[in-house]
Structures are given as C-alpha cells and as structure tokens.
Write a protein that binds this DNA or RNA. Structure first.
Lengths: 342, 342
DNA sequence: CTGAAAGCGCTTACAG
DNA sequence: CTGAAAGCGCTTACAG
C-alpha cells in the first residue's frame, strides 16, 4: 500500500474495487459480492458499498472480471449476412434485450459458408463469450464440435430443429412454405412455381413445404422450381421471373423464397405490362419493408424475427445464469399476409 | 509448477503462454514477444515459438491481454440505427477490415438521440475499447467530453467535420445536396421541393445544399421544404408526396432526403397515375437497393458508405498502433446517378 | 536479444 | 456473513 516512489507501478488511474473498499471501509471481496448482488452480504454493507461505488464513479473492469471468473459478459451472435434485413432485425432485437442485461454482443458474419462459420466460431470463442446465438441448425461437424466443445450455452434461431436437442427459437420454415402454397391453391391457382435464390437450409425447407402442399393437392407432377445461387435481390427477381415465363409459360402463380425477389418481379411485371394477379399471382416471404407499398401490394409470410431475437436473448440469459429453461424449443409461428398480388 | 493435489488451482484447461514456452523451450515473455511480432526476438526463436503455438493450438486470452496491457482488441462503433441500410453497410465494411486485423467490434445504437448516445458511450467505454468510430460530428457536450476524456483514438464517419479537428472519413452532405439540386435545375426544373424525414444533422446539411443551389440560381424564394419527424420509410414517402401536392401543387420536382421516401413516392405516383418525370421529377439519396429497379428507375446520389467504413477502419487501425495518419480528414465524395425519374 | 519478477483488477476457494 | 490469500493469463518495466 506504500506509494513510495521506488515502487514499480502500472496503475491505470482507474477507480478500482480496492478504492471502493477503502471508501466503504470493507474488504475488496465484500465489495465484489455486494456489487454482484450475491446474497450473503449484510444489507447495510451493500448500501454502504453501493454509495461508495457511486461516489467514486466505479466501473468494473470487464477484462479483470473475465480473467478471474473465466467468463466474459460477451455473447457471440452468428448470422449469415448483414445485407439481409431479416438478420439485422434479429440482431437488433437481440441487442435490445442483451445490452440492458449487461452483455455485449460480438457479431460474426458467416456468409452462408460452412468454412467461414468455423473460422468465425473459432475467433469468437477465443473471446470467451458467455453464450452463443447461432442461425439455423445446419452446420458442419467441425462447427458443431466447436460449439459442443466450448461447453457454452447456445441458442439456435430461425428454424425449429427440436430433434437436434439443445435450445432453439424459431418457426417451421417448412410449414410456412406449405401454408403460403396452400393459400395460392385456395385462391384457385394450379400451376405454381417456387423461385429461390441463395439456397440456404431455410430456403430449401420452404421449398419442401411447397412440394408437400402440391403433393397433398394431387399436383406433385406440377412442381416447378427455379433457383439461382446468386444472392437474393430485386434485380435477380426480375431475371428469375423472365426465366419462369420462358421455361414454364403456363405458370399462374409464383412463390418467391424472399420478398426482395418478389418485389423485383412485381416491378418487372409492371414494366412488361403483365397483369398481377390477373395473369400471374405473386407471393413472397418475410414481409420486408416496402412489400405493403408495392403495386399491387405483395402477399407474403410475416416472420417473427424480432420476437425470435428477443426470446432467444431471454432464453440465453437464463441459460447463462444457470436457470432452467422450459420449454427448450420455442415455436413462434408465422402469418400469411394476404394482399392484392394473389 | 508442482501439480500436487494439495495445491489450490483454478486452471481453466486452456493452453496458455506458459505451455507454449515450455514446448518451445523459452521463457513466457519471449513467447509473448514473438507472437506479437515484436522485433528484438531472434528469428530462429520466433519460428520455434510459432511452431509450438500451432502444435498446441494456442489462442491468446483477450481478457488477460487486456488486463495486462490496459487495452483491449475491441473497437466500439456507434451508429444511429440498425434499420437504416446505410449504417448497416458501413458497419459491414468496418467489420470486414477490423476483424482480420484482430479486432472485435462492439456495436452501439444511439437511435438519433443525444442522451442515448451518452449512455451507450459510457457503457461501451467500460469495456475499454482500443478505439472508437462514431457517426457524424454533431453530439452533446457530455458525449464529446466522454470521448476526449477517454483519450482513445476516434474516427468520425459520414460527414466531413474537418473544423472539429480529430479524424474523419466521409463526404460533404451539403455539397451532395447541392449537386443533386443542381442536376434538377439543369434538367429545367424550377419548382423544386426538399422532402425530409428523421431530421438528423446530415439530412439538415443536405437541405442546406438544396437551399444554396436554389439561391445561386436566383430561386431563393422558391424554397419549399416538407418534413416529418417520423423515421424514414416508403409509406411515409407516399404520405409526404401527398402533402407536397396539397401544399405546393405547382411543384415540378422533389428531392427526397433518402431513397426509401423516394421509392414510396414513386410507387404512390404509379397508383395515382401521375407521370414521372413528366408531371413531376423525383430524386432520392443514397442509392439504396431497389432504386435502380423502380418504375421509372430512381435518380439519386450514390454514397460511398462501404468505402467510408473501410477507410475509417484502416485509419483507426493506424491510430491504435500509434502510426501517423495523414491526411486526418478523408473526403470520399459522392456521385449523382441519373436515371429515368428526372 | 532474453528473462525473472511484479502487477493489471478482479473472483475463487478456503477459513472462520 | 466477512476476509486474507492466491490465482486467472497475460504484459510492463527493469536488468543483463
């Protein structure tokens, strides 16, 4: 404690736990316990400690805390892309509930790529997060092993994946694809095409739902699928519309795997003077911004990505605190939004 | 080093620097120096250390590093909103250059609110970031003080703000607003309205540019500005178009402060059967996804937000390494993109 | 160019 | 319910 000038010091000038302890007249460990809300500290002391901490403007050092406790206040969130509104919404909602709970979010962008996901996982795990939120249930064995091996609580989002065990929050992509197709069938369409870009697992699941609906309607032989490996965009939607018209001209309805494709196709139809839904019905997925403004407004499936983010963050918070979580799998559903394009 | 059972141990099972040192047959400090690329280590030892680190799968502990060095590998990025493509693009670009350089990004969302920015700044500063990227130059005195007081390198993005000192990467919002207005004047328009939402500083600067252009053309008395405090959206664009038509029916061109407003207005015009650009020219700002797909395609200003993110990250990296940065202010410019809507 | 010692600011594990 | 000691895994500052 002697501040003699001969002492080797690296003090950072920060207010530390020791300062608060001195101010409150207790030991540092009592300050630590009081501030973390551990019971087993006399209420009177807690008050004194908190007053001292406030008076000194004490802010705990996350690095010291992480080093000593072997766990940080970081949560890693892995999403495929930042250019997709769906994942940004998810992320935004996650932040909204995690930040007030005292956590910081580390973002990992996987670009829909298994190898990238592994690399991101490795780099993010080095930061010793306290928990993980990952998109989807489909990943490489190595990525799987990294997650399991970390021993960290992990919540998967966007699909259901109850059979994978663990914890998840999402909705049935397959069922949503089926429901939208059913809506098209119900409105009298019989030649329905499924148009997809960016063939990630969820897009494929929606396609399964589409095929299931057709099969159930006895139209299994009418399946028409057109897809592109390119990332989803409005321009691509227009191009894929042209392809459908060329390859399957009798098509009377198109189910686009994402709203941006459908929006692009809608505008392309407008340019071509093609009547929607008269000649061709169009529907999208996700209810993105602008879909309700299209001409005509776009029928789509509203997906609860914000709610998924919120619930996943709450679930993860509970897991990180060692609290029991039940049920471990949350199905938040979806909603077919009928607008004038179908 | 004795692993006797009586010893109190909290070992985490991680591979540590000491393990690598033992494997390489050198002291821990030499490993530390070799791995950080400090010169003053014999090349032969560096090779041996790196081999040992790879063999053991050593991953440095960021918490220990941060605690010992009083600086973390975190960079805090403050943006107004995650629902605005412009900032997400910026963030994405920042991540793309910062992550490979070994940094982690902490995101702070300020919601265009001074008090929120302060709170976010405080919380993010507690994590001892090594540097800061903040949006714009306009902030509360308290926020300013927090940044200065932290002593951290900080790069401002999106506008120029050279007179504020420090470092910045962006473009002149005012000049961009002026240039777009000039384009409308050049195409013969004389009754040009400026329509804005979400009145943040950059929107106001664009408005200044608009007024400057009109003034220069001797049309200072023709200034028509319509704005809403609501967040920018396509639906709002349609509503604001209606307001302009009601309040200033002779208007022959509209400059929208953001493309989503313009897109919404374009579609509203389509529904109304109003000829664009015949009856009314429309232009936006930012060249957002879909603007090139509109009917007609939207004239706008392409803004270099990705490039801003990349350059800002590089500038900050240099600052964090104590390298000199010159020039301290980067003007990345903008481009008026002429399409059929004007 | 290399290393032994001390310390960063917390929490864990053990005692009382 | 409270505390003295040790330790988390690194880097700094000092020596040689």
């Amino acid at each position: 404690m002697a501040g003699s000038s001969g002492r080797r010091t690296r003090a950072t000038g920060r207010v530390t736990l020791a300062d608060v302890a001195r101010e409150a007249g207790v030991s540092p460990i009592t300050v630590s316990r009081a501030l973390r809300g551990e019971r087993a500290v006399a209420p009177e002391l807690v008050a004194r400690v908190q007053a001292a901490a406030t008076a000194l403007g004490y802010v705990p050092d996350p690095a010291a805390r992480a080093l000593a406790s072997a766990r940080s206040a970081n949560v890693a969130v892995l999403i495929p892309k930042l250019s997709n509104t769906v994942f940004v919404d998810l992320l935004d909602a996650v932040q909204h509930t995690l930040v007030p709970a005292g956590y910081q979010t580390l973002i990992g962008v996987t670009h829909y790529d298994a190898a990238t996901e592994e690399a991101v996982l490795r780099s993010v795990l080095a930061h010793r997060p306290a928990g993980l939120i990952v998109t989807g249930s489909d990943r490489s064995a190595a990525a799987h092993a990294l997650i399991r091996g970390s021993g960290l609580p992990c919540v998967r989002v966007m699909d259901l994946g109850a059979d994978e065990g663990g914890h998840s929050v999402g909705f049935s992509q397959r069922e949503a694809g089926r429901a939208l197709t059913q809506h098209l069938l119900d409105s009298g369409r019989r030649r329905i095409a499924y148009v997809a870009a960016q063939l990630d697992p969820r897009t494929l699941e929606r396609g399964e739902g589409y095929r299931a609906a057709l099969a159930q309607a006895g139209l299994a032989d009418r399946v028409v699928q057109v897809s592109s490996p390119e990332p989803s965009s409005m321009a691509l939607g227009g191009a894929l519309l042209a392809r459908v018209l060329r390859e399957a001209p009798e098509t009377d309805a198109i189910f686009f795997c994402n709203d941006d494709l459908a929006q692009g196709a809608l505008l392309a139809a407008l340019r071509l003077g093609m009547a929607v839904p008269g000649r061709l019905a169009m529907a999208g997925f996700n209810d993105l911004p602008g879909s309700d403004q299209m001409v005509p407004p776009l029928t789509t499936v509203a997906t609860p990505r914000r709610e998924i983010g919120t619930q996943a963050a709450q679930m993860l918070t509970a897991l990180m605190r060692g609290q029991p979580v039940d049920p471990p799998h949350l199905d938040l559903g979806f909603e077919v939004v009928r607008r004038a394009s179908t």
